[in-house]
Design a protein around this nucleic acid. Sequence first.
DNA 1: TCTATAGTTCGAATATAATCGAACTATAGA
DNA 2: TCTATAGTTCGATTATATTCGAACTATAGA
Lengths: 105, 105
Amino acid sequence: MRQIKHPNIEQVELADIMYALSDPTRLEIVARLGNAGRKMTCGEFDLNRPKSSMSHHFKILRAAGLVETLIEGTEHLNALRVDEIERKFPGVLQSVLRALVPAKT
Amino acid sequence: MRQIKHPNIEQVELADIMYALSDPTRLEIVARLGNAGRKMTCGEFDLNRPKSSMSHHFKILRAAGLVETLIEGTEHLNALRVDEIERKFPGVLQSVLRALVPAKT
DNA sequence: TCTATAGTTCGAATATAATCGAACTATAGA
DNA sequence: TCTATAGTTCGATTATATTCGAACTATAGA
């Protein structure tokens, strides 16, 4: 396996995005990715959960089209697909990201 | 039972909203309520599902804080809590509603 | 008071999801 | 080639959701 397959943006459905965002762990991952504004490895999220659970959540985020994962060496670099999602569903991801920031005055 | 209890807006959580919006039937209900821009009875949604299923979905939409239900006679009048949600999570519901409109030029 | 209407609740069946340890894969570097 | 690292996949368990018929509740109107 060279690179991970992602859905292309035409295939992305709103209900799947909503589903992916309905879990607290995944919301946290999305929040951190959004805050970071850079690619992050799975290991960087220190959410006190075993690797297999984290992997499961990333899989769902990827399947929903929210996250894109680039394999580089032994690491998987994850990024939000903000631009594409924004073009397809304007405002949805941005407003969610804003809602996730804890009152950043 | 006089009137149905709803969560007040402070108690409403983003994950619950996302969860409520992750089901196609509920998305459809929300879309129609949004389009209508008026209160609608449960029976008006002609989604080919038994009453008990519809009732279940309305219960979840209510619990998530998305829908407000007013009892009037034998009917239950449902409305989106757009203003409150908008104040708490700016853009979230609006952008979802816009995404649900099928290319209304 | 009787009946029709609108919707909820209950209960059981079925489906889907979350969780996590253990085994696995792929790469980097010694 | 051996080892460590990063992450995935598998499989089993447990938890949650969906679905829908049947019974129920509350109100309106005759």
